[in-house]
Computed example of a mutant assay.
Amino acid sequence: MRLAAVFLLAALPAAAQEFVVVPGPLTDEEFYRAVACAAPPGDACQKPILRWPEDKRQDLTVALVSVTPALLPYQRAIFEAGLDAALGQINALDAGVRLTRIAGGRGATDIAIHVVATPPGQVMEDTGVEGLDGNVLPLGRVALRARDNEIREALIAISAQARRREIASILLEEVTQALGLMTDIEGPDYRRSVFAETGNSVVRLEGQDAMALRRHYRGAPTADEES
């Protein structure tokens, strides 16, 4: 995603690789390992592989926890519709996870989304959320709290200044990344992927994007996990 960042909280590397550069099309295995653990083609994982615990996967809750007062009602409606569409795309895959949207504050939901007034490239302030305040917001940011390779909580921040035509795509990618697929891909063959580093236009999970999410929760472990 253009101008996006994934940040790991807890006992995990603080400086995580944001994207993998690929020269051409990848096999399904290469694509999965790239988005799941930042592995360049034919190379080792650069990030830990993280998943939600099995006992939560069929009822992961998602909430639009806070929205800046600077957002006009019609703008909020765009974020609301984009979030519903993102959850619909993910649930339709039968990928081994199911997301339920709730109305609730942080602590009452697994994946908490905040629409903030911070302009892209500026430091977030006054959100009141540890893990967001004090960090630069490129355009969207995902912060994962994890322990023993299991995700415990996901925080998503999106700038209210995101362009209208990009909002649905940003939400789809951020929620997908909150499921553990944390790395973008940079390459001419992947401009129409939800994981594309240089664009925010994809609003459907198809092809290798869909394969990667199914593989993450339904497929066999990678060699990195078995070793």
Rank of each mutant, 00 (worst) to 15 (best):
R2P: 00
L3W: 12
F7H: 07
L8S: 12
L9P: 00
A10V: 02
A15Q: 14
L26T: 03
D28R: 15
E29L: 10
C37E: 03
A38T: 04
D43R: 14
K47D: 10
I49Y: 13
L50I: 05
R51N: 11
W52Y: 09
P53A: 07
P53K: 05
Q58N: 15
D59T: 06
T61H: 04
T61D: 04
V62L: 06
L64N: 01
L64W: 01
V65W: 05
V65H: 00
S66Q: 11
V67R: 00
P69L: 11
A70C: 03
P73D: 13
P73S: 12
E80A: 09
L83Y: 01
D84Y: 08
A85M: 00
G88K: 06
G96S: 04
R101I: 02
I102E: 03
A103S: 14
A103K: 07
G104R: 08
G105L: 07
A112M: 11
A112L: 13
H114C: 05
A117E: 14
Q122F: 09
E125H: 08
D126Y: 05
G128K: 04
V129I: 14
V129W: 00
D133Q: 06
G134V: 09
N135D: 09
V136R: 13
L137F: 13
G140T: 15
R141D: 07
R141W: 07
A143Q: 00
A143S: 15
A143V: 03
R145V: 11
D148L: 10
E153H: 10
E153R: 13
A154G: 06
I158F: 04
I158H: 00
A160Y: 00
Q161Y: 12
A162Y: 06
R164D: 13
R165D: 15
R165S: 15
E166R: 02
E166Y: 04
I167W: 01
A168D: 11
S169K: 08
L171M: 15
L171R: 10
L171H: 09
L172R: 02
E174S: 08
T176F: 12
D189P: 00
Y190C: 05
A196T: 02
E197S: 14
V203W: 01
A210K: 03
M211H: 10
A212F: 10
R214F: 09
R215W: 03
R215S: 09
Y217S: 14
A220P: 00
P221K: 02
A223V: 04
D224Y: 14
E226C: 08
S227M: 10
